[in-house]
Protein backbone atom coordinates (compact mmCIF):
# COMPACT_ATOMS: atom_id res chain seq x y z
CA UNK A 1 0.00 0.00 0.00
CA UNK A 2 1.27 3.44 -0.83
CA UNK A 3 2.69 5.63 1.86
CA UNK A 4 0.17 8.30 2.71
CA UNK A 5 2.13 10.34 5.17
CA UNK A 6 5.79 11.21 5.40
CA UNK A 7 7.53 13.56 7.79
CA UNK A 8 11.27 14.07 8.23
CA UNK A 9 13.13 15.55 11.14
CA UNK A 10 16.81 16.50 11.03
CA UNK A 11 18.63 15.51 14.24
CA UNK A 12 21.91 17.18 15.17
CA UNK A 13 24.79 15.37 16.81
CA UNK A 14 25.29 16.33 20.46
CA UNK A 15 22.20 18.53 20.56
CA UNK A 16 20.95 17.51 24.00
CA UNK A 17 18.80 20.60 24.43
CA UNK A 18 16.51 19.62 21.57
CA UNK A 19 16.80 15.85 22.02
CA UNK A 20 13.36 14.29 22.15
CA UNK A 21 11.59 17.02 20.16
CA UNK A 22 11.22 14.91 17.04
CA UNK A 23 9.75 12.08 19.15
CA UNK A 24 7.26 14.44 20.78
CA UNK A 25 6.07 15.68 17.37
CA UNK A 26 5.87 12.15 16.00
CA UNK A 27 3.79 11.04 19.00
CA UNK A 28 1.45 13.98 18.56
CA UNK A 29 1.00 13.17 14.87
CA UNK A 30 0.21 9.51 15.58
CA UNK A 31 -2.28 10.42 18.29
CA UNK A 32 -4.06 12.75 15.87
CA UNK A 33 -4.22 9.93 13.36
CA UNK A 34 -5.90 7.83 16.02
CA UNK A 35 -3.21 5.10 16.16
CA UNK A 36 -4.07 2.57 18.89
CA UNK A 37 -2.64 2.99 22.37
CA UNK A 38 -0.67 -0.23 22.15
CA UNK A 39 1.13 0.65 18.90
CA UNK A 40 1.65 4.19 20.19
CA UNK A 41 3.46 2.89 23.24
CA UNK A 42 5.86 0.77 21.19
CA UNK A 43 6.54 3.58 18.72
CA UNK A 44 7.13 6.08 21.57
CA UNK A 45 9.79 3.95 23.22
CA UNK A 46 11.60 3.00 20.01
CA UNK A 47 11.36 6.49 18.58
CA UNK A 48 12.92 8.17 21.59
CA UNK A 49 15.70 5.57 21.72
CA UNK A 50 16.54 6.00 18.05
CA UNK A 51 16.43 9.80 18.26
CA UNK A 52 18.77 9.75 21.26
CA UNK A 53 21.10 7.41 19.40
CA UNK A 54 21.39 9.98 16.64
CA UNK A 55 22.22 12.67 19.21
CA UNK A 56 24.67 10.60 21.23
CA UNK A 57 26.41 8.34 18.73
CA UNK A 58 26.04 9.73 15.23
CA UNK A 59 27.53 12.65 13.40
CA UNK A 60 23.99 13.81 12.69
CA UNK A 61 21.17 12.42 10.63
CA UNK A 62 17.50 12.34 9.84
CA UNK A 63 14.56 10.65 11.46
CA UNK A 64 11.70 9.89 9.10
CA UNK A 65 8.16 8.87 9.93
CA UNK A 66 6.12 7.00 7.33
CA UNK A 67 2.52 5.95 7.81
CA UNK A 68 0.43 3.77 5.57
CA UNK A 69 -2.78 1.90 6.36
CA UNK A 70 -0.84 -1.22 7.34
CA UNK A 71 1.98 0.10 9.46
CA UNK A 72 4.00 2.91 10.98
CA UNK A 73 7.62 3.02 9.86
CA UNK A 74 10.53 4.88 11.43
CA UNK A 75 13.76 5.30 9.52
CA UNK A 76 16.86 6.70 11.15
CA UNK A 77 19.62 7.53 8.70
CA UNK A 78 22.90 9.08 9.80
CA UNK A 79 26.07 10.26 8.10
CA UNK A 80 28.47 8.29 10.25
CA UNK A 81 30.60 7.13 11.94
CA UNK A 82 29.08 3.65 11.38
CA UNK A 83 29.06 0.61 13.65
CA UNK A 84 32.05 -1.76 13.31
CA UNK A 85 30.38 -4.80 14.92
CA UNK A 86 26.59 -4.83 14.74
CA UNK A 87 26.17 -8.07 16.74
CA UNK A 88 28.09 -6.56 19.61
CA UNK A 89 26.10 -3.32 19.39
CA UNK A 90 22.88 -5.32 19.62
CA UNK A 91 24.01 -6.97 22.88
CA UNK A 92 22.21 -5.78 26.00
CA UNK A 93 24.50 -3.76 28.24
CA UNK A 94 27.02 -2.92 25.53
CA UNK A 95 27.49 0.79 25.03
CA UNK A 96 30.03 3.15 23.55
CA UNK A 97 28.37 6.25 25.03
CA UNK A 98 30.87 8.90 26.11
CA UNK A 99 31.22 10.41 29.57
CA UNK A 100 28.92 13.35 28.77
CA UNK A 101 26.10 11.04 27.72
CA UNK A 102 26.59 8.81 30.74
CA UNK A 103 26.41 11.74 33.14
CA UNK A 104 23.03 12.49 31.61
CA UNK A 105 21.85 8.98 32.39
CA UNK A 106 22.32 7.44 28.95
CA UNK A 107 24.59 4.63 27.86
CA UNK A 108 22.98 1.68 29.64
CA UNK A 109 23.43 -0.32 26.46
CA UNK A 110 19.72 -0.95 26.08
CA UNK A 111 19.04 1.32 23.12
CA UNK A 112 19.20 -1.04 20.14
CA UNK A 113 17.82 -4.09 22.00
CA UNK A 114 14.91 -1.95 23.19
CA UNK A 115 14.15 -0.80 19.64
CA UNK A 116 14.21 -4.35 18.37
CA UNK A 117 11.92 -5.49 21.17
CA UNK A 118 9.34 -2.81 20.45
CA UNK A 119 9.28 -2.95 16.66
CA UNK A 120 7.39 -5.55 14.63
CA UNK A 121 10.23 -5.57 12.12
CA UNK A 122 13.69 -4.27 12.76
CA UNK A 123 16.56 -3.83 10.34
CA UNK A 124 19.97 -2.26 10.80
CA UNK A 125 22.55 -1.60 8.09
CA UNK A 126 25.86 0.03 8.84
CA UNK A 127 29.15 0.78 7.18
CA UNK A 128 32.08 2.34 8.97
CA UNK A 129 32.87 5.72 7.50
CA UNK A 130 29.53 5.89 5.68
CA UNK A 131 26.71 5.68 8.21
CA UNK A 132 23.97 3.64 9.77
CA UNK A 133 20.36 3.15 8.69
CA UNK A 134 17.83 1.68 11.08
CA UNK A 135 14.39 0.76 9.75
CA UNK A 136 11.65 -0.18 12.17
CA UNK A 137 8.07 -0.94 11.35
CA UNK A 138 5.09 -1.31 13.64
CA UNK A 139 2.09 -3.24 12.36
CA UNK A 140 -1.25 -1.49 12.83
CA UNK A 141 -3.32 -4.66 12.75
Amino acid sequence: MAVLLEKSFPVEAGAYTTAGEASTTIKRTLKQLGISAEVLRHVSVACYEVELNLVIHSLGGTLTLLVDPEKVTLISKDIGPGIPDIDKAMTEGFSTANEEARTLGFGAGMGLPNMKRNATEFDIQSEVGVGTTITMSFALK
Binding site: K31, Q32, L33, G34, P69, L140
Partner: peptide, 18 residues
Protein backbone atom coordinates in the same frame (compact mmCIF):
# COMPACT_ATOMS: atom_id res chain seq x y z
CA UNK B 1 -10.97 10.18 24.78
CA UNK B 2 -10.55 10.57 21.04
CA UNK B 3 -11.22 14.32 20.89
CA UNK B 4 -7.76 15.00 19.41
CA UNK B 5 -8.29 12.53 16.55
CA UNK B 6 -8.60 14.12 13.13
CA UNK B 7 -10.92 11.47 11.77
CA UNK B 8 -12.30 8.05 12.67
CA UNK B 9 -10.99 6.71 9.40
CA UNK B 10 -7.20 6.36 9.29
CA UNK B 11 -6.85 7.12 5.59
CA UNK B 12 -9.03 10.20 5.86
CA UNK B 13 -7.06 11.29 8.94
CA UNK B 14 -3.82 10.99 6.97
CA UNK B 15 -5.25 13.06 4.13
CA UNK B 16 -6.28 15.72 6.60
CA UNK B 17 -2.83 15.63 8.19
CA UNK B 18 -1.26 16.26 4.82
Amino acid sequence: NSAMKLDDDLIEAMRKME
